[in-house]
């Protein structure tokens, strides 16, 4: 048994989700008494690569050339699949990030592997079989998927597994793979990333608002609250449909699914399609002027009242608390 973890970088840096997948893969490696090998693609500095040792990788394979500086899922899938074959990996772990979602099925198909998408916890291992818990029916249920193929791919949900520092060190080794020219058939033209914003799927705290806010001009207080908390902002579907907020903030069944430690819903009624995207949040706070709003039924804490009055007060109270 051997385990490979693919570690995604953003502009040459590893983010929390990268350490999450390494920590997760390390736990599987420990449970199966094997070493963990990591693979990184793109331009990442040596010390950044070596730092993966601190989360449990004993070796880091690095693949870097001009052509691979932006994400091309076919080429990346070819490289990772080849590395997996090279070290005879029977378990491959990666993040269920936006790029990971496009990558994992392609790698699995190349390896004739079974794929568990969006794992929420460590797998249980029973002989050749590996079972993984994931969310199903848009967060209305959990399903345990049994992977029976010889090779298994697991994509880990962001925020589902705690990072663990091991104090270990890793050897960094270059890796070269044979990539066909047809693997470069997509060309990245532009990347637009709001660097000052916290990315929604990875955020530990999310402040979200709905139609109760009345109009886009009222989002200042939402952003201020998010700022104090170091939170990402989100919204309900009608809000993004109306163009009050960008589509990238829309959470729910047809939007992004989030599972932060804290989700604060302001002026959102709590329709079943909205809940589908947020109900796995660890703690939910609801602020709504209607005591009958369905959201209160799935909330941990609530305040019944007018958002325009409560949100600024809450921001003040948090500022005072943070000041301590």
């Amino acid at each position: 048994m051997s385990i490979l973890v693919y570690v995604e970088n953003t502009d040459g840096k590893f983010k929390k989700s990268a350490f999450e997948v390494v920590s997760y893969a390390k736990a599987i490696a420990d449970n199966t008494s094997t070493d963990l090998v990591a693979i990184s693609i793109g331009n990442v500095a040596q010390d950044e690569l070596a730092a993966l040792g601190n989360y449990g990788a004993s070796k880091v394979l690095t693949v870097n050339n001009e052509q691979l500086s932006s994400f091309v899922n076919q080429a990346y899938a070819s490289i990772i699949a080849e590395a997996a074959k090279n070290i005879s990996a029977n378990v491959l772990v990666l993040s269920n990030s936006f790029s990971g979602k496009g990558l994992a099925p392609r790698i699995a198909a190349k390896l004739h592997a079974a794929l568990a998408d969006g794992a929420l916890a460590l797998p249980t291992i029973e002989g050749e079989k590996l079972s993984v818990k994931k969310s199903a029916f848009s967060n209305k249920a959990f399903a345990t998927v049994e992977l029976t193929a010889a090779t298994k791919v697991i994509s880990l949900s962001p925020n589902a597994y705690e990072t663990k520092e091991t104090g270990g060190t890793a050897v960094v080794e270059p890796f070269t793979a044979n990539i066909a020219s047809t693997d470069f058939s997509t060309i990245v033209k532009e990347i637009v990333r709001a660097t000052d914003k916290i990315s929604l799927p990875e955020a530990e705290i999310v402040v979200s608002a709905g139609r109760g806010l009345k109009g886009p001009e009222n989002w200042g207080m939402i952003e201020e609250l998010a700022d104090v908390l170091g939170a990402a902002t989100a919204c309900s579907k009608p809000v993004s449909d109306a163009g009050w907020r960008p589509h990238s903030e829309h959470v729910g069944q047809t939007g992004i699914v989030v599972s932060p430690n804290l989700y604060i819903a302001i002026g959102i009624s709590g329709a079943i399609q909205h809940l589908a995207g947020v109900s796995s949040s660890k703690t939910i706070v609801v602020i709504n002027k209607d005591p009958e709003a369905p959201f209160f039924k799935v909330a941990d804490y609530g305040i019944v009242g007018d958002a325009f009055e409560i949100v600024p007060k809450l921001t003040q109270a948090l500022k005072a608390y943070k000041g301590h």
Binding site: F98, I187, I191, V192, A194, P201
Partner: peptide, 12 residues
């Protein structure tokens, strides 16, 4: 296409 915290434009 959607990426964490933004978007990527690509052609094929």
């Amino acid at each position: 296409r959607e990426i964490e915290g933004g978007k990527e434009v690509l052609t094929a």
